[in-house]
Design a protein around this nucleic acid. Structure first.
Lengths: 338, 338
DNA sequence: ATGAAAGCGCTAACAT
DNA sequence: ATGTTAGCGCTTTCAT
């Protein structure tokens, strides 16, 4: 059996004594064909294990069955579990995904979009994107922004999904307050992460409703939202003599790093400093002490995003262009010591 | 500007007053063309931001520029950081990747391979694969197995890469021994993970060289290698009255779970039970107590795999069909208490 | 050095 | 109900 060639619709057609058009019709269930031809064709497909060539199909339809997923960094559990969920629902629907990491760099985002358009992707899901939305691609292909709200009036081509970041911020403010913090500092998700605004606004609003006003220079923006960044920021806070009795870290990784330097400087958590994180990744449970944090369901976000994308590529105007998923506070040991 | 159409080679050709063949030639640097036509064409490409349609190219060449990556579960940091590295090197070389999660299910693996062949992937990188290698796809497209060694004599189409699992097992045995454990138990990576054999063999060999023989029923295989699985296994070990003073968990997640139930049962680590894990994921540092573990560089594995794949798709017989990367023991606090 | 033309495997008019 | 035909955008002979 030296025949390495993939079997094509033409092969199937010949086996069945029909034309390729008919084969295409039964596969895509469009047009008409008699029940018996259908049966014959299906059997041949089964028997020869025929797989329609998606390149050819894509070329013809000017659109492939792959959707591009762009995230800052897939090794962040928040994104990887989101992607896991997406891949699963897409797979069940005969779509595949292709991944890009932007490292939060706008240049990278642009480069990705170029590739994406070369690939004739059916759609793109962009997480935590900082890019300017006036990109050509986006008018032409369905786009979903995760963790960022943009104008969706562009004709059903754009949708947004994220958890309730504003409320998350409020919950954090409340928890810090109830832990006795009256002089908190917030470390934002990262310099220009789109997620930052809502979380910070929510936090500020929460504080304000409790009668507290936060000095703007007590809002620090790290360059990256990594564990190390968390460490460094708290170190320099201390070095600069900034006083604080509470920390709202807009990312668990940041919080975990913060806790490390707090512990190294013998600052007691939560007694001297209360800390609230954001995301509720696996690591949060294992921080020292276990981290109180705002939980968001990244798996669910991925699932909803994928489902929504499926609707959109199938031509439906999504009924909701803005989806917001609930968040909740998970109280562990960095707040409210009895 | 209502012209949404992607610009094609034909457009470029017309702008430059040449034929599409020529455009193709300068893009792919093959065939001949005068320096000035080259210049004209390049300028037009630049100016109109032309991106060759990869679907068309793939269809014509019977092979796309995407490589399939199949892993058990991308939300495992070991895999996600491997994939991060891969994506980066592929991106720089104008390849993209498409991800599949198999959940360690052989059925899923098969389903993925069907999709992969429909996509005319240029190659596949399969991590921790349990699937039978006699699959058609593999003879036809370059394949790299991560964490699994297979026969590579099939004509430069198959290569393998993994860290030195055997040595990793030995290191674990030694460390446990030096921590005073004389009666260890091993929890393998998961029921039929290909990685298990080498790690376990290495462990056994290490023990043997120290004059210790391990009873086969002290080798436990979990169904999944998750934190919860680790918890449960140790629970049932205790419930069944199995005595042990050392634990080699072939996965950090397993180890982290194990530590949780050990702590819940008030078994002192490392005094009563010494524990060594495997992988050295971020979580290891944050386990309670911080986990001694065998470090492997998943980022490097991904990078090397991608580089190797690039060689292979470019037609080179890889000079090394089996790559083994070093491992090292990272001693933290679950072994050798002073 | 360059153009014309065929064709990759598919879908979508348009026929019949 | 089914066949014929014309491309989708590209690469690659084969001419010139």
């Amino acid at each position: 059996m030296a025949d390495d060639r993939q079997v094509t619709a033409k092969d199937i057609a010949e086996m069945c004594g029909v034309s390729v058009a008919t084969v295409s019709r039964v596969i895509n269930q469009n047009g008409r064909f008699s029940p018996e031809t259908e049966k014959r064709v299906r059997e041949a497909i089964e028997k020869y294990n025929y797989q329609p060539n998606s390149l050819a199909k894509g070329l013809r339809k000017k659109r492939s069955n792959v959707v591009g997923v762009v995230v800052p960094n897939i090794s962040n559990e928040y994104f990887s579990s989101m992607i896991l969920a997406m891949q699963q629902v897409f797979f069940e629907n005969d779509y595949s995904i292709t991944i890009f990491n932007t490292n939060n760099s706008v240049e990278m985002e642009r480069a990705c979009h170029a590739q994406l358009s070369a690939l004739s992707v059916a759609g793109v899901i962009s997480a935590n994107s900082r890019e300017d939305v006036r990109d050509a691609l986006k008018r032409v292909v369905p786009t979903i922004y995760v963790d960022r709200f943009v104008d969706t009036g562009v004709g059903g081509k754009v949708a947004c999904i994220s958890s309730d970041n504003h409320r998350g911020g409020m919950l954090a403010a409340q928890e810090l307050w109830e832990s006795g913090s009256r002089n908190p500092v917030v470390i934002t998700a990262s310099a220009e992460s789109p997620v930052t605004q809502a979380r910070t606004d929510g936090f500020l609003a929460g504080l304000r409703s409790l009668g507290l006003e936060l000095d703007p220079d007590r809002i620090i923006s790290p360059v990256k939202s990594s564990i190390d960044a968390g460490k460094e920021i708290v170190s320099s806070l201390i070095a600069n003599g900034v006083e604080f009795d509470g920390l709202f870290c807009e990312t668990d990784r940041l919080a975990v790093g913060a806790l490390e330097t707090l512990s190294a400087r013998y600052m007691l958590v939560p007694d001297e400093v209360a800390v609230v994180g954001y995301d509720d990744i696996t690591l949060a449970r294992f921080a020292r002490p276990p981290l109180t944090t705002v939980h968001q369901d990244s798996h669910k976000i991925g699932e909803r995003a994928a489902l929504l994308m499926l609707e959109m590529v199938r031509g439906a105007e999504p009924k909701e262009a803005h989806i917001t998923l609930p968040v909740g506070l998970v109280r562990r040991e960095t707040t409210r010591r009895e």
